[in-house]
């Protein structure tokens, strides 16, 4: 059974990637270097893209790579470089509340894990006929045309806002 072997391989890959992502996510908040934090975030986001690929969601995966790694992280790094933020390791990057922060974080993780297990543990993903890019395109330009266009309005608003706030005169 090729299908079953494929499934085993995919599951194995899933756990490997998930472990890497978890490590990256923890390092994002524990590292003392803000540039390293941004780079660890790349690991997490790339891991997410890889998971999408494993699920056969090619379009979402590449959007994840292009938008998050290509644009958002680069923006982060630009922001760090342009704002005279310290580029080397800092002792004071995490404050004393890190212990207390574990409580809400753990609670949120527990709630979400419970919810997702409760709702989706008996569901299976159909990997034989994944959603192709064409279907996504069709959804964006037909079913979700209005939100797609309104996002354009949102970007214009953000652009004008940024100009208004950043202008010095």
């Amino acid at each position: 059974m090729l299908g079953a072997q494929l499934l085993v391989a995919e599951n194995a890959f899933f756990y490997v990637i998930a472990a890497v992502m978890a490590y990256g996510a923890i390092r994002v908040v524990t590292t003392n270097n803000i540039v390293h934090a941004a780079l660890y975030l790349v690991v997490v986001l790339a891991g997410g893209a890889a998971q999408y690929l494993l699920l056969g969601q090619e379009f979402v995966a590449w959007v994840q790579v292009i938008v998050y790694i290509g644009a958002v992280i680069v923006l982060f790094l630009f922001g760090i470089m342009l704002t005279r933020a310290p580029m080397k390791a800092e002792e004071k990057l995490t404050n004393d509340l890190r212990g207390a922060a574990l409580i809400p974080t753990g609670l949120l993780a527990a709630i979400l894990a419970t919810l997702c297990l409760d709702a989706f543990s008996d569901k299976t993903v159909d990997l034989v006929s994944p959603i192709r890019t064409k279907a996504v395109t069709s959804a964006i330009f037909r079913g979700y045309l209005v939100p797609f266009e309104v996002v354009g309005v949102l970007l214009l608003g953000a652009l004008i806002g940024a100009v208004v706030l950043a202008r010095r005169d």
């Binding site: 979700y144 209005v146 939100p147 309104v150 996002v151 949102l154 608003g157 953000a158 806002g161």
Partner: peptide, 14 residues
């Protein structure tokens, strides 16, 4: 549509 609600919410919030 909830997505439209969200995007619209962001437009006027920003």
């Amino acid at each position: 549509d909830l997505i439209v609600v969200f995007v619209a919410l962001e437009v006027f919030s920003i």
